[in-house]
Amino acid sequence: DYEVGESVTVMDGPFATLPATISEVNAEQQKLKVLVSIFGRETPVELTFGQVSKI
């Protein structure tokens, strides 16, 4: 299970290999909103559970 505030690594898509912090969890739809730090700015990205891995 994923929790808000948890650190994960993006495994898929254009942000693969980047660390991210979970900002929202939708367990019903198996989706997460995460904040990816790009060029010093936090960018919100919506991903599925399968696109991230716990650190």
Rank of each mutant, 00 (worst) to 15 (best):
G13S: 03
Q29T: 13
S53V: 11
E46N: 07
S23N: 08
T43N: 07
I38D: 05
K54F: 05
V34M: 03
V4M: 05
D12F: 15
G50C: 09
K54P: 06
G40C: 08
V8C: 05
I55E: 08
T43Y: 15
I38E: 06
I38S: 07
Q51G: 05
S7N: 10
I22K: 00
Q30R: 14
V45F: 07
M11R: 09
S53T: 11
N26M: 12
G40Q: 05
S37I: 15
V34E: 00
I22L: 03
L32N: 00
A16Y: 06
I55R: 12
D12G: 08
A20W: 02
T9W: 15
T48A: 11
E42C: 14
V34K: 00
V34G: 03
T48W: 11
S7F: 13
N26L: 11
P14D: 07
I22S: 01
E6M: 14
L35A: 05
P14H: 06
P44F: 15
A16Q: 08
P44E: 15
T9E: 07
K54H: 07
S23E: 10
I55Y: 10
V8K: 00
D1R: 12
V10M: 05
F49D: 01
E6V: 05
Q51L: 04
F39T: 06
T43D: 06
K33I: 15
L35W: 09
L47H: 01
V4A: 06
S37G: 07
V10R: 00
F49K: 02
A20V: 05
T48Q: 09
N26C: 11
Y2H: 04
A27V: 14
R41F: 11
S23M: 15
K54Y: 06
G50Y: 10
F39A: 11
P44I: 15
G40K: 03
E42Q: 11
V8G: 01
E28P: 10
V45A: 07
S7C: 13
L32G: 00
E6Y: 05
V34N: 00
E28A: 13
V36I: 13
D12L: 09
M11G: 04
E42Y: 11
A20T: 02
E24T: 07
V36A: 03
S23R: 10
S7R: 15
T21P: 02
D1F: 14
L47P: 00
E24F: 11
V52P: 00
K54A: 06
V36K: 00
A16V: 08
E28K: 11
E6D: 13
S23A: 13
L47W: 01
V4T: 05
D1V: 13
F15Y: 14
P19Y: 14
E42L: 14
P44S: 15
A20R: 01
V10K: 00
T9P: 01
F15I: 02
G50W: 14
E28L: 11
D1K: 13
D12M: 12
E24Q: 08
V10G: 00
V25N: 02
Q29Y: 10
I38P: 04
S23H: 10
Q51H: 04
V8L: 04
V4Q: 05
Q29C: 08
L35C: 09
E28F: 11
E6F: 06
R41M: 13
R41K: 13
G40D: 07
L35G: 02
V25F: 04
Q51R: 04
L32E: 00
S7L: 15
D1L: 14
S7A: 12
L32R: 00
D1G: 13
K33S: 07
N26E: 05
T9C: 12
R41T: 11
F49H: 03
A20G: 14
Q30A: 08
Y2M: 04
S53I: 11
A27T: 12
A27L: 13
Q29S: 11
L32T: 00
K33C: 10
S53E: 11
Q30N: 09
T17D: 09
L18N: 06
E3V: 14
G5Q: 03
L47C: 05
V10S: 01
F15V: 02
M11Q: 07
K33T: 14
A16H: 05
F49T: 03
Q30H: 09
Q30D: 05
P44N: 11
L47E: 00
I22M: 01
A27I: 13
S37Q: 12
F39R: 10
S37W: 14
G13P: 03
V34L: 08
P19L: 15
G50R: 10
A16M: 08
Y2E: 00
N26H: 11
A16R: 12
P19T: 15
E6T: 07
E3G: 07
Q51Y: 03
F49G: 01
A27M: 13
K33A: 05
V34R: 00
I38W: 13
M11P: 02
F15G: 02
L18F: 14
Y2R: 02
M11V: 12
G13F: 03
L35S: 06
S53H: 10
F39M: 12
P14Q: 08
G40E: 05
T9L: 15
V10N: 00
P14S: 05
L32D: 00
V52Y: 01
S7M: 15
A16W: 05
V36F: 04
E3Q: 14
V10W: 02
E46T: 10
P19G: 09
L32A: 01
V25I: 12
E42P: 11
P44V: 15
V10Y: 01
N26I: 09
E42V: 12
P19H: 14
Y2A: 02
E46L: 08
A16P: 02
L32I: 08
V34H: 00
V45S: 04
E42G: 06
F49P: 03
A27G: 09
D12E: 13
E6P: 01
I22N: 00
D12Y: 14
Q29H: 10
Q51E: 06
S37H: 13
V52G: 01
V45K: 03
E42M: 11
Q30W: 08
G13N: 02
E46P: 04
I55H: 10
Q51V: 03
T48L: 11
A27Y: 15
P19N: 13
S53W: 07
G40T: 04
R41S: 10
G40V: 03
G13T: 02
L47K: 02
M11H: 06
S7D: 08
A20I: 02
S53N: 09
E6C: 07
E6R: 05
L18P: 00
F15P: 00
A16E: 06
F49Q: 02
G5N: 05
G5R: 03
A20C: 07
A27H: 14
A27K: 13
G5H: 04
E28M: 11
S23F: 15
Q30P: 02
F39W: 10
V34P: 00
T9H: 08
M11W: 06
N26A: 06
D12H: 13
E28S: 11
K54Q: 05
F39D: 12
L35Q: 06
V45E: 04
T48S: 13
I55D: 09
P44R: 11
V4Y: 04
K54M: 05
V45R: 02
E3I: 13
Q29A: 12
F15S: 02
T17K: 10
A20S: 04
G5E: 03
Q51W: 04
T17S: 13
T17C: 14
I22T: 01
I22G: 00
D12P: 02
Q29N: 09
K31N: 06
I38Q: 09
G13W: 03
K54L: 06
G5Y: 04
Q51M: 08
P19S: 15
E24G: 07
T48G: 11
E24D: 08
Y2C: 04
A16S: 08
G13D: 02
I38T: 06
G50E: 12
I38F: 11
V45M: 08
F39G: 12
E42D: 11
S7K: 15
V34C: 09
I55S: 10
N26T: 05
V8P: 00
F39K: 10
G13L: 02
G13E: 02
E24V: 08
V36C: 05
E42R: 06
